[in-house]
Design a protein around this nucleic acid. Structure first.
Lengths: 162, 162
DNA sequence: CTTGATACAGTAATAATTCCTAAGTCGGAT
DNA sequence: ATCCGACTTAGGAATTATTACTGTATCAAG
C-alpha cells in the first residue's frame, strides 16, 4: 500500500500538481472504482475519512486532474458531472432509469477506433478526445421495466446510488 | 411556406401536442438549423419575433418535444443543454474552444451501427439511443490555436495559473 | 359559441457549479 | 531541519441553468 500510494503520487507529480492528502484520496478513489462518481459522491465518500473535506476542493481537484488529462468527464445525465479515471477511449452505457454508468471496453474498441479514424480522415477537425454514450436501460432496470411497463419514456429520475 | 407550416404542424399533431404559435416557431427554428442551440439561444432568437416569449415556455416545449422523440438532447458543453432535430443517430463534433457542435453523418453511420450492434449483442443492456461526441477543435479554432499556441494541453507542463 | 383541458408568462425555488478570500500546507532553497 | 513563497484548502456567497408553482389566456372538440 505504500507502493500503492506511490502510484497516485507519481501521477500527481508528473502532472505538475502538488500532492496533498485530499488529492491523493480523491485520485485513489477514482482509480479504484468502476463507477463514475459525481463530485457530490466523491465528497460524500471521502468526507468521513477526511473530516472537513470541502466540496469546493473536490471540484477544484477534479478540474485540475481533468485538465492534466488524468481524469475524464463523462456526459452522463446531463446536468451532473461524472468522472472516470480510465485513460484509454471507451464507450459508456448510461441507464435512463437509475443513472448508472458502465464502461464498455474490450472487443468494441477496434470499432471505436475505426470510427475515430474515419472522422479524422474526413473532417478538418482536430480530435482530442471522445465520449460515446449509449443510453438505455441497465440489466436490472430493464427487468423491472418489463415486469411493470407503467411508462414507456420520459423518465428523469436520477441515481438512487452508485 | 404554407406547406412548410404544415410540416411542423403535422409533427406536433402526430406527437399528440397542441400546435401553438410558440411551439411552431421553436420547432421551425430547430428544423431549420444545423447548429445545436441551447434553450437560451432559442429564446434569444425568437423573442424578437415573438415578443414576450418566455424562457420557461422554451424549456417546456423543448422538453415536450424531446419526450415525444422529435428532438434530442446533446451532451455538448456539459452543463448546458443543446438540442438537435436530426432524428437518426449520428455523431457530434464538439469544439472545446468555441462550443460549436457539428453533426457528422454520411459515411460514418455504418460504423456507428456496427458499434451499436456489437454492444447490443455483447451486453444485457437494452439500448434506446446514443450520443457519441468527439471533442476537439473545429477548423476555425484549430487554426487560431496553431497560430498562438498559448496553452499546450497534454504535456505535463501545465501552468496551474487558472 | 361554449367549454374543458392545456399552454403561457412571470415569479420563486432548486440544484449544480464557480468565485472570493483568508488561513493553511507543500516543497524547494537555505 | 527550517523557512518562505507559492499553491491549496475551506467555507460561504454568488452565479448559472433548470424546474416548480400559479393564475390567466388560448386551443380545439363538440
Amino acid at each position: 500500500m505504500e507502493r500503492q500510494e506511490h502510484v497516485e503520487l507519481g501521477i500527481l507529480r508528473s502532472a505538475g500538481l502538488r500532492a496533498t492528502p485530499q488529492r491523493l484520496a480523491i485520485l485513489r478513489l477514482l482509480l479504484g472504482t468502476q463507477a463514475h462518481p459525481s463530485p457530490e459522491t466523491v465528497h460524500r465518500e471521502l468526507s468521513s475519512a477526511y473530516l472537513g473535506l470541502s466540496l469546493n476542493t473536490v471540484y477544484q481537484t477534479l478540474r485540475a486532474l481533468e485538465k492534466a488529462r488524468v481524469l475524464r468527464r463523462v456526459g452522463g445525465e446531463q446536468n451532473l458531472y461524472r468522472y472516470d479515471a480510465n485513460a484509454h477511449p471507451h464507450l459508456h452505457l448510461v441507464c435512463r432509469q437509475c443513472g448508472r454508468v458502465d464502461d464498455c471496453n474490450g472487443e468494441m474498441m477496434p470499432l471505436l477506433d475505426d470510427l475515430s479514424r474515419a472522422v479524422s480522415a474526413r473532417t478538418a477537425w482536430e480530435l482530442r478526445d471522445q465520449d460515446s454514450c449509449f443510453y438505455g436501460y441497465c440489466p436490472h432496470c430493464r427487468e423491472s421495466r418489463e415486469l411493470s411497463p407503467k411508462d414507456k419514456e420520459g423518465h428523469h429520475e436520477s441515481q438512487p446510488g452508485q
